[in-house]
Design a protein around this nucleic acid. Sequence first.
DNA 1: ACCTGAACACCGTTCAAGT
DNA 2: ACCTGAACACCGTTCAAGT
Lengths: 224, 224
Amino acid sequence: MSQPSAPRRTPGRPPRISREEIIRTARRIVDEEGVAKLTMRRLASEVGSTPMALYHHVRDKEELLVLLLDDYATRTLRRPELPADPRERAVAAATAIHEALAACPWIVEVLTADDLMSTSALWFVEQIVDGLAEAGLSPERAVHGYRAIWYYTAGEIVVRTTAARRRTDDDRATYREQVFAGLDADELPRLAQVADRWAPLTATDTYQDGLRALVHGLLAARPA
Amino acid sequence: MSQPSAPRRTPGRPPRISREEIIRTARRIVDEEGVAKLTMRRLASEVGSTPMALYHHVRDKEELLVLLLDDYATRTLRRPELPADPRERAVAAATAIHEALAACPWIVEVLTADDLMSTSALWFVEQIVDGLAEAGLSPERAVHGYRAIWYYTAGEIVVRTTAARRRTDDDRATYREQVFAGLDADELPRLAQVADRWAPLTATDTYQDGLRALVHGLLAARPA
DNA sequence: ACCTGAACACCGTTCAAGT
DNA sequence: ACCTGAACACCGTTCAAGT
């Protein structure tokens, strides 16, 4: 998908811009100014061309974003040394994916990818499925386990990065504080109990804890 | 937030449109044609007014969407009978939230909400936190447990609804098939093993399984 | 106080034509 | 084969003015 098209025997006009150049430029815009600034028009002018020239190299903006994610994954996902213990291997592989995504918040817009973020991430998926299988799950259950881990991971990224986006304009944060300050302790006693600690509690990074709990639960034999 | 503003002693011109009417109309557009069709201009014309009149009743489009989610939650989240067993109570409350969200896929665009979708959902959050606490977690761990459940739930909704969106234009699906068909069985043996079953495996609804695994893992005493 | 009209500063994409 | 220009059909939001 992201590999440059093989150089053909140029039967027509020589290309002025390449898909690679488009992606490289798009990456720069996103890194420097955020994904919201990436428009076909802006990208075209940055690349020294016209909006319509881009459509000769990518089908539409959606494809461009997927290409960008693929490019990002290929460049940044380095395969780490994984623990021998299968359960720990699954945890480590999921954590590696999570870290790569967390470092790149614009990804949320594209995180729409259903099963896996990119073919470059397949190796990590393999490690998770294999870890779960070696730890005792059937192949089917291992795949379902992987999916649960992916839901949890994608959800953490989406919720956290959009919460961070909200925090910038802080009206909403203070609104939330008001809600928690005015909780009816009779109707919602547990929430009232933790109301004053809600902000720090929810700011804590508990990805690892939740991941370990999930993996633990997936591996525990439970009655269907 | 969503309650109609108290009728003041009209010192100026009488309002022609109300916030309530705006939200009601927005809801109709979203239900009938999807959230993508909800634009300020379209909404204004549907309500028999001008785009700018809307800005007198809502701050911007973002606020409108949050209002819409709040409205949806208030109207559809009915408190179910919950099981007495604390663990089952947490599972049932999470499932209720999940069902409400799953029935309303446009929500993904707004699911950006950080901790909770709406104040109307607070009761459900209470049930989850309380279930976890009564099952043995400290208040802090119960809140963190709730967050893990929320990540998992939000992630499932986001991934599933965007996957469904992709399935309509099926280029991407067939691309994915190609990738799985051409897997190197030496490098990625587990994935190769399940390659031909990947589509049905990932289409299965396993929200409940994953949720139960997660809750199980959260409640299992584990070494830090 | 509430609403209107006109404008600003944009979008993604299609179509027909050029080289 | 690749690129351009002009156009289509939109956006959210601001500003100044009207009633």
